[in-house]
Design a protein around this nucleic acid. Structure first.
Ligand code: FES
Ligand code: FES
Lengths: 144, 144
DNA sequence: TAATACTCTACTTGTACGGTAGGAATAGTA
DNA sequence: TACTATTCCTACCGTACAAGTAGAGTATTA
């Protein structure tokens, strides 16, 4: 039950883009340095997010990446789904024909419950939420 | 975010043991047939559950496995923890020193939330709960 | 003693993760 | 135009783990 680094890196990168939303494109080199992620690896993750339509890229010199939507319009479940794949704890939860006695299986219901719990959390949080929360933290730190 | 078959098999096997709690030991051969699991593989899973103290084995002819505790005393989180390992979505959730700015990281808090959501579900369900639920299902089916 | 069922260890096979590497395409800049 | 910066694309690689197979060994009962 560990998340792939893909997803963890991706969310952090997406958050950084969200924090600089409205400004000039952010370069992967910058993000990679901030987040201590391999640039080449990050390129691949961003390609996935780009294909899914969450970020836009600007090629060439002074290029970079920007969010393709408002931070408030991107849920963590979106990013998660794009990089980690759909939240599926067990095959039979999705595919009723996977197990023989699927209809009556109480174990299946447990995995469905787990799956739903995860989905609920991820769907309830947008990038904007994270930006706000991070801003709050910094402010309260300055006040100490 | 898929569960290993280890865990899924293990829970199903544990449930079957719970359903025959109080009776004579149940043989792996039987469980393997019912659940359509490789016997040899199941042996290894049960060894893990035995080491963890959830089941007891009876060797020799007419031997088999029995639950070492009451079904109501075994939570799904126990079995899960034994077979899948602890519910950890990301290293930094457990180990505060893993990431540099761990204290302020809002992403970390998300993974902690996810982790907690999963844990809550699994800790709230015991094998006895599943046995009861399964019994209810069968009864209601007969009534149709 | 023979049959049964768990025990232990080793091996195999496939797949996905987490990268690395190199170059092509594109766009700004001098 | 030449140069540089940056994304884009594809291929490759090593490791770890899951999932399962295999076989010999040990305990218990009939
Ligand atoms: S339906 Fe798949 S394990 Fe029960
Ligand atoms: S603390 Fe580990 S990703 Fe933020």
């Amino acid at each position: 039950m560990k998340l792939s680094t893909r997803t963890r890196y991706g969310v952090r990168a997406a958050l950084e883009l969200a924090e600089s939303a409205g400004r000039r494109p952010l370069q992967l080199k910058t993000i990679a340095q901030h987040q201590e992620i391999s640039l080449k690896y990050l390129e691949q993750l961003m390609a996935m997010l780009r294909s899914a339509g969450f970020v836009r890229s600007v090629r060439g010199s002074k290029g970079g990446y920007v969010l393709a939507k408002l931070p408030s319009q991107i849920k963590l479940s979106d990013v998660f789904n794009c990089l980690e794949g759909p939240v599926i704890t067990a095959e039979c939860v999705q595919n009723d024909n996977y197990c023989a006695r699927s209809a009556d299986c109480v174990v299946k219901q447990v995995w469905a419950q787990v799956q739903q719990a995860v989905t609920n959390v991820l769907e309830s949080i947008t990038l904007q939420d994270l930006v706000d929360k991070a801003k709050d933290k910094k402010t309260s730190n300055y006040q100490i």
